[in-house]
Simulated scan of single mutants.
Amino acid sequence: MKWGKKSLMTLAAAALFVTAACSNNGGGAEPANNDGGAVKSNAILATLGEGNDNLKGKKIALIMQFNEGAFSAQYVAGVKEQVESLGGTLQVQAAGNNLADMASKLDAAVNGGFDGILTDHGTAEALEAGVKKAVEKGIPVVAFDANLQVPGVTVLQQSDEAMSKTLLEQMKADIGGKGNIVKVWVAGFAPMERRQISYKAFMDANPDIKEIAHFGTAEKPALDTQNQMEAILKQYPNKGDISAVWASWDEFAKGATRAIEQAGRTEIKVYGIDMSDEDLQMIQKENSPWVASIAVDPKDIGRVQARYLYQKLHGDETEAKVVLDAVLVKREALPKDKQINTTELGQYVEGWGKSEQGIADWMGRTDK
């Protein structure tokens, strides 16, 4: 959800690629199952091991570039449940896609008596000064999806190049290695730039797959994609004119899917990156053109990030970069007789929602 040398507004909005919205307090309703009851999460949570009572009651700040959409809501929920499982409290501050405001909120957190700081998106230019100030004051920092290179800071990122490559290879297999495709992508965000590397290499290696159109914007991405895709479908009105859409962010996949459905062109396959409950509902819809998405469980992203922060609070040495493991979710793997959400997805897709990354030897653990 979520740019480089464009206007500040575009930079900020583009960072939305990771999508998603959460409440300001980082809370969120537990999803319900098909019988109306609460779904029991299959999450693995770290807890404090014996002899670590000094880590109880830590105040953690999460400084976000944006907090809009389902992905971010689930991400924040993951941070919150992991921090609380480790005995801490979380305060969420979101900057509404304003990088200057994000830098200001980070500076306030550094001076606000917090024991640890997490950041979500943003740019190195916006965050570096505040992060360096935090490190100088002995406040540990763990960032997600920002190209920070500050000694002592751990940066989490999704395996964007590998994710993109895996998704493209799935698309290739599904369309028989040839056909016309539409690319939806926007420049400027670190994750997007990494995904583009794999896309270019794939297209260079597969000359029978032709890109006939490309577009993308971070301003109202799902709606804009829908509008632009509708126009492209009119340019290419015949079945077989377009084989697939490669959407480098799930907000793009939503818009492309809606346009294709409304035009009755569901022979066109859609492939997306990232996953939320809303995405999963669209993928499960009968005859949906959205057939596959690759993602890290957004709750697991939050959990893993919080674990690395607590490693730092414990005095552990942590890596400068942590790459999160992604999972390919295909429509064919999902149940046909009921609709599920991402909390239940791990029952059908191996590896989803059960990440143990970041759990140190001194931590306990629990399966919720």
Rank of each mutant, 00 (worst) to 15 (best):
S159H: 01
G87M: 10
I294D: 04
I209N: 00
G27S: 12
A190E: 00
H121S: 15
A146D: 02
G96Y: 09
G364E: 03
V327F: 06
V270Y: 03
L62Q: 11
Q284P: 04
K178H: 09
W352Y: 10
K299S: 09
L233H: 00
E84L: 10
R303C: 05
F17D: 10
N33S: 02
I44T: 12
N238Q: 01
F114E: 00
G177L: 08
M9V: 14
F71A: 12
A333T: 13
G188E: 07
G4V: 09
D145N: 11
A100R: 14
G255N: 05
E219Y: 04
I260G: 00
L233C: 01
F189K: 04
K56S: 13
K59G: 11
Q93K: 14
A32D: 11
T342L: 05
K80V: 11
V270W: 04
Q196C: 06
M192N: 01
V141W: 04
E169R: 09
A231I: 00
K5P: 08
F202A: 07
A263E: 06
K254H: 14
K165S: 04
V155N: 07
T89F: 13
S7I: 00
E219A: 11
D53M: 00
D107C: 09
P207T: 01
D174N: 11
A13D: 11
A213E: 07
W352V: 08
T257G: 04
E219I: 10
A95S: 13
T257M: 08
I294H: 02
M1P: 09
C22Y: 07
A21Q: 12
G216R: 00
T166F: 03
V153N: 05
L11P: 01
A333W: 12
G37A: 12
G240A: 00
G152S: 06
D115V: 09
Q65M: 15
I175A: 06
D208R: 06
S288I: 09
V182I: 11
R365F: 13
L48E: 03
T366H: 10
L99P: 00
